[in-house]
Write a protein that binds this DNA or RNA. Sequence first.
RNA 1: GUGAUUGUAGCUCAGUUGGUUAGAGCGCCUGAUUGUGGUUCAGGAGGUCGAGGGUUCGAGCCCCUUCUUUCACCCCA
Length: 456
Amino acid sequence: MKPSIPKGTRDFGPAEMVKRNYIFDTIKVVFKKYGFLPIETPSMEQLSTLMGKYGEEGDKLIFKILNSGKYLDGVDETAYSNKDVKKLTVGIAEKALRYDLTVPFARFVVMHQNELSFPFRRYQIQPVWRADKPQKGRYREFYQCDADVIGSDSLLNELDLMELMNEVFSNLNLNVTLLINNRKVLAGIAEVLDASDKMIDITVAIDKLDKIGIDKVKEELRVKGLTEDAIEKLSPLLSFTGDTAEKVALLKSMLSNSEIGCKGIEEIEKLFDLTSGLNFSHLNIQLDLTLARGLNYYTGAIFEVKVNEPAINFAGSICGGGRYDDLTGIFGLKGMSGVGISFGADRIYDVLDELKLFPAEASQSTKVLMVNFGEVESNYALTILRKLRAHNIAAEIYPDPAKLKKQFAYADNRAIPYVVIAGSDEIANNTFVLKNMSSGEQKTISINDDFQTIFN
RNA sequence: GUGAUUGUAGCUCAGUUGGUUAGAGCGCCUGAUUGUGGUUCAGGAGGUCGAGGGUUCGAGCCCCUUCUUUCACCCCA
């Protein structure tokens, strides 16, 4: 049989893992530095935990797990004859692979509320799965690196996360743009347009402004059932250009009759106030009134990070997040506001790779290879091997007494810088030959010499 | 979910209007060199041409189905 892996999944070889770990390690170091604590949750959740949290589209993209055993027993006959997939699904699949880390985190907080002290700061680095069609920057299995604070509605948390983002991207040596908006403002806009139920449609359409232009946005709004009057009211926002202060001023005049809208403006102003005077070396922070974000659960500030480099032909976001006021409420714990961000490790990888920003890896693993001549010689080599390892020098022995040519070729392919040769002559003299593979230089060393210094 | 695109040796790819036994480079194996790799030279192995069906005297090439790759849309990290 021909081996293969499922669509949209990938294997990672050693060279890729070194680079991936560089990203994970960089992010993790900053997470810890900001006082976030690690947790992990299972790959699969109850399907009911996940459904309805990510919007209509999101529900479809959740990987469902078929029940074990007689899973057909759960089939609803009428749902089957009506080909009602949605209803059928919940009958035959009660588990699903996690779609993000935020919803499982909310579930975790509710289940473990008595063991946690709030505000709770957690970080979580795990894969998530989405049944998307793969394409550039889009995988069916990818890692998210999340940091969330739950149990506090202070904007200091938003500020903290912004500083954290700056530090991560600074450490990755990547210049990015941080787009900020506020869901309350979007809700306010929908309210004054008299279309509160269409907030998602409106924001999704506005979000495309850069891409498809003002006329197409209006057309989409019309298709979504917005009145001409409402579209007219929205117009100044769509055609608006100006700095943050001017944007805020526009919003204030537009949303003066919306309580939630005013609250949103206030939050934006306060957040920008908090950041003023701070040096965000790698974050270009912008208020973007067209930023929407599709996930249903956001209620306050929303973030999205895009790469600045024009050389990168990838427009998607590499990091995103926001505030969710009541994500735990669905699981029975009210009044737990949270805010978090999520770094998309796989997209960051693609960007760093394209920009050649991965540090020259000091990643050669094995430093010394012990040549194997046979049983007697390998026993002698093993004692040297153990001594090397005792000095924290990464070393291995070629396991078979293969031809020297082959053993050297192996060292060469693996980029192992030193080879130790110890045959009968060396054993008789309590020595070994150390060969430097790049220079070809060989020297004889006594097994009693100081191993720490022989590689310098 | 919609629309394109791709699949030939381990890898990267040639393969003409359908016509004998499907090729190259790299890699791999063996030897030149029995205790010395990265260079060189000589030789060798390796393919159900993604899978299934069809048209044809004859299919890697044409048609259908399906899977896969890459990309755009939708949506998203």
